[in-house]
């Protein structure tokens, strides 16, 4: 084990530092196992239809008449009234930024040069605060703000596979774009 003090560490925190080298060299006793867990989740009618429509370049939702609610992504039941939902309804591919974050780190905590813009978009035609998460593009981080109108930028038809990433990102909606 490495017993040297690390530069900059406070004096009141002495101890033995464990380095990844110590683990590699088996100075730490451990046992290793890699679980083999694989799943294929059946999507059911609501999400299957949603993905099929995304492939076709459309966003679809479901209505709950009881709650006067338009739900997107669609669901077969409404968690408010606990009844089944009623009809399919096509929605626009535009919406409003509900909230966002500008991410500068990748999952390994490395700095990303061009920050990732991600946020929640309420889709036009759905009930307020009904929508999904997606990326933002064609804008500078400093332009992104809550309440901003945005529009989906779709992948070319032949590249769409039936996935939420069939939409590349949402860009600022400029008058006349609708």
């Amino acid at each position: 084990m490495s017993e040297e003090r690390i530069e900059g560490q406070p004096k009141y925190a002495p101890g033995t530092h464990v380095r990844s080298k110590d683990i590699r060299e088996r100075k730490i006793t451990y046992t290793w196992w890699e679980p083999e867990a694989q799943y294929a989740f059946s999507l059911g009618p609501a999400n299957s239809r949603f993905l099929k429509e995304l492939k076709a370049g459309k966003i679809i939702g479901r209505t709950c008449r009881k709650c006067d609610r338009v739900i997107v992504p669609p669901r077969m039941f409404c968690d408010w009234c606990y009844d089944t939902t009623h009809e399919w309804v096509y929605l626009k591919d535009t919406g409003t930024v509900e909230t966002f974050s500008i991410s500068y780190l990748d999952p390994d905590a490395h700095l990303i040069e061009d920050p990732i813009l991600v946020g929640v978009i309420s889709i036009d035609g759905a009930s307020p605060k009904h929508g999904f998460m997606h990326y933002f593009g064609e804008m500078k981080p400093e332009d992104l703000r809550i309440g901003m109108k945005v529009k989906a930028v779709w992948k070319p038809k032949e590249e769409r596979v039936g996935s939420v990433t069939d939409i590349k990102y949402f860009k600022p909606l400029i008058g006349g774009d609708e």
């Binding site: 989740f41 059946s42 059911g44 009618p45 609501a46 999400n47 039941f77």
Partner: peptide
């Protein structure tokens, strides 16, 4: 039960 998601199944 490929016709339903686990959520619809529980519902």
């Amino acid at each position: 039960t490929p016709d339903v998601s686990w959520k619809e199944f529980m519902y």
